[in-house]
Every structure is written in structure tokens, then in C-alpha cells.
Design a protein around this nucleic acid. Structure first.
Length: 370
DNA sequence: ACTGAGCGG
């Protein structure tokens, strides 16, 4: 048998490694399971930074098996390691066959507890409770070797209680598949959200406005603790067609002298997620907007300070930021100016490039995107 | 709250 074939029989993949874990440390640890032939922490070829995984090659298959059985999820440098048989065939790793998703996990459920609850259904290739520095995130993955084991686990474990909490167990879905599913579910909505109808509205009147689109299951004007309308409410229809018609015909219409908004009702978490995403989006746009109108000013006379620079450019528009680069108490001969619009920045470039500020002509250019 | 990461000499 050649060397490569021999390694493969007794090779373990060690994942989720902390960056400070060394080969020595792994050698010490795994030698407790039996004689170790070699260990390699994989690193980026160029930077030599660890890639977060390693191989441990045992001389004996039984020792590798023992390590897998007894050392999986042991904590090194504060982080649980994840052990698997080395599997170099990427197709086998990524097929997705037998992969199971678990959620609604109690925070007290750790990797080992999870493993104990699922290992009886078949051979597990890899499992993991997702966590951050706050601890468990309440969901996990168990990848079985066979689909039949996964089916069995789903059948037996979905709805079961682990550490006083009922868990949800189902086939794993990729993020893309899941998003598509959510979108298609959302497109068949039956619950409608109405806002901006003022406070002269109650359930009965709302019912009166919306019942012509179809049968309603519930109509509710949301109120505060004193019973006063909050200006919004929900109408639940018995069919998507009715809900869709209500949105199409009522959105933007005048009710009690006000233009109302009528749309698909979202769950609170969904709404929050959307708002959060919008906020991130506008933040990104704002950053991009600022980058687009940043000017580099070179060949600066080193007596010119930020105030003078701002003054020299203020006639072209509103300046959000001015900076003169400094080193050792004097200017380094360049700086930057942020305008609030691209037009202003462009005008500043055409008008000021080559013009004298102090004793030297300015050299101005639009800053490159980073 | 909420569907991953992962393979060398």
C-alpha cells in the first residue's frame, strides 16, 4: 500500500479551529487516542494565515475512530473543534443528502447534547449548534450519511422536547430555496394591513369598507389601552383573491378624508427585518454617495490649513468634510474635501484645478472608489 | 429568533 492510501484510512478532518491552535497542541491532544503519524494545520499559501482546519493522521484506524468518538466538540482555546473523517471528494461533501435543520433549541443544548439526541438514527458526518460569543443561536445542523437516517430523525424528533423545549426538525434548505419559499408564501397572502384611516374608525366601519371584496374572517382596528384607535388595523379574508382585490382597489383611496395605505400584512419580525434592511441600504447609499464626491487635493502649500481649504472651495456647494493630511506638525501636501453632490464636486474640479491657493497651484482629482 | 461549512502532503 502506498503512503497516500495508508493516510486516508486513518485521517481525521478537524474543523472550526481557533487561529492560535498549533500543531504541537493538536499532537498532544490527539496522541491520547493513539500514536499520531502526522498533523497539518492548513494555511493560506501566500499569507500563511491558518484556514481554521487541520488533518490528524493516525497510524491505526481504530485510534482515529476512538478520537472521533471521544474528542468531537472538545474545546481548544475556547472553541469546540468539529471532527469528521477526512473526505476530499467535494461532491460527496456538498451533495446535501441527509442534511437536517433543527431550530427552537434551548440555549442549554450544546453540541454534545445535540449529538446524543440524533446519533441513534444513523451515522452522522457532521453536526453543529450555531453559536456566537453570546452562546447558542438556538439552531443547528446534523448531516447524516444517508437520507434514510435523516428521514428517520425528522420523523422521530420533530416536535420532541429537548431540555424543556419543543424542537423543530426538518430537511435542510439552502438560503436561496428558503427565501424563494417565503416569497411564494407571501404572494398568497390573505391578511391585509390598513393604515392612515385616522382615529374616527372602528371595527364595524372597517368591516363595512372591506367586506365588498370577499368574506372576512376577522376585522380589527388596533387601539391603545384607553380604547382609542391607533389609526391602523387588519382585515383577514378567507381567500387570497379577496385580499388581493382589497389591496388593488383600496390602496391610496380616500377614507374619511384621508389617503389610506392598504397592503399585505407582514408579521412583526418580517416587518422589523425589512426596516433593518432598508436602513442598511440607505446607509450604504449614503456612504457610496459620499465616496462619489470626495476630492483629493494635491500639491498643497503647507501653510494652507483646513479652514483655508474649506473657504477656498465653499462657493461650489456644501462641504461635509475637509481634511489636510498632517505629519509631524505640518501639512503633507495633500488633503481631501467631501461635497454633498457630484455636481458640486465636478464644478470644484473644473474651476479649481491648477488654481493657486497660497504659493502653489492645486492639483485636484475625484477620489477613486476604495 | 430562523437553513453551514467543509478537505493537504
Amino acid at each position: 500500500m502506498n503512503v497516500a492510501a495508508k493516510y486516508r484510512l486513518a485521517s481525521l478532518y478537524v474543523g472550526d479551529l481557533h487561529a492560535e491552535v498549533t500543531e504541537d497542541l493538536l499532537f498532544q491532544k490527539f496522541s491520547a487516542a493513539g500514536p499520531v503519524l502526522s498533523i497539518r494545520i492548513c494555511r493560506d499559501l501566500a499569507t500563511r494565515r491558518p484556514l481554521g482546519y487541520a488533518y490528524v493522521n493516525f497510524l491505526q484506524l481504530a485510534d482515529a475512530q476512538r478520537a472521533l468518538d471521544t474528542m468531537n466538540f472538545d474545546v481548544i482555546k475556547g472553541r469546540p473543534i468539529r471532527l469528521m473523517w477526512a473526505q476530499r471528494d467535494a461532491c460527496l461533501r456538498k451533495s446535501g443528502i441527509g442534511n437536517v435543520f433543527i431550530k427552537n433549541l434551548d440555549r442549554s443544548v450544546d453540541n454534545k447534547t445535540l449529538y446524543e439526541h440524533f446519533s441513534g438514527f444513523g451515522k452522522i458526518l457532521s453536526s453543529k449548534v450555531m453559536s456566537d460569543d453570546q452562546g447558542s443561536k438556538g439552531y443547528a445542523f446534523v448531516h447524516f450519511q444517508s437520507q434514510s437516517a435523516a428521514d428517520c430523525a425528522i420523523e422521530q424528533m420533530n416536535g420532541k422536547v429537548i431540555n424543556d423545549r419543543q424542537v423543530f426538525v426538518a430537511p435542510f434548505k439552502t438560503r436561496k430555496d428558503r427565501e424563494a419559499e417565503l416569497r411564494s408564501r407571501a404572494s398568497e397572502f390573505t391578511n391585509v394591513y390598513i393604515k392612515n384611516f385616522g382615529n374616527a374608525m372602528d371595527d364595524e366601519r372597517l368591516q363595512g369598507v372591506f367586506s365588498r371584496f370577499g368574506k372576512t374572517l376577522s376585522v380589527k382596528v388596533m387601539t391603545d389601552s384607553s380604547g382609542k384607535s391607533k389609526g391602523f388595523g387588519f382585515v383577514s379574508f378567507d381567500s387570497h383573491e379577496a385580499a388581493k382585490k382589497a389591496v388593488e382597489e383600496m390602496n391610496g383611496k380616500d377614507i374619511n378624508g384621508q389617503l389610506v395605505f392598504v397592503g399585505r400584512a407582514q408579521k412583526k419580525v418580517e416587518r422589523q427585518a425589512e426596516l433593518r434592511q432598508k436602513f442598511e441600504q440607505t446607509k450604504k447609499e449614503r456612504i457610496r454617495g459620499c465616496q462619489g464626491v470626495k476630492l483629493y487635493v494635491r500639491n498643497l502649500d503647507d501653510t494652507v490649513d483646513e479652514e483655508q481649504l474649506r473657504e477656498g472651495f465653499s462657493s461650489f456647494g456644501s462641504i461635509s468634510r475637509v481634511k489636510v493630511m498632517q505629519a509631524g506638525g505640518h501639512g503633507r501636501g495633500f488633503g481631501l474635501i467631501c461635497f454633498s453632490s457630484a455636481e458640486e464636486a465636478a464644478k470644484a474640479v473644473t474651476e479649481m484645478n491648477g488654481r493657486f491657493l497660497g504659493s502653489k497651484p492645486l492639483s485636484i482629482a475625484l477620489a477613486q472608489r476604495p
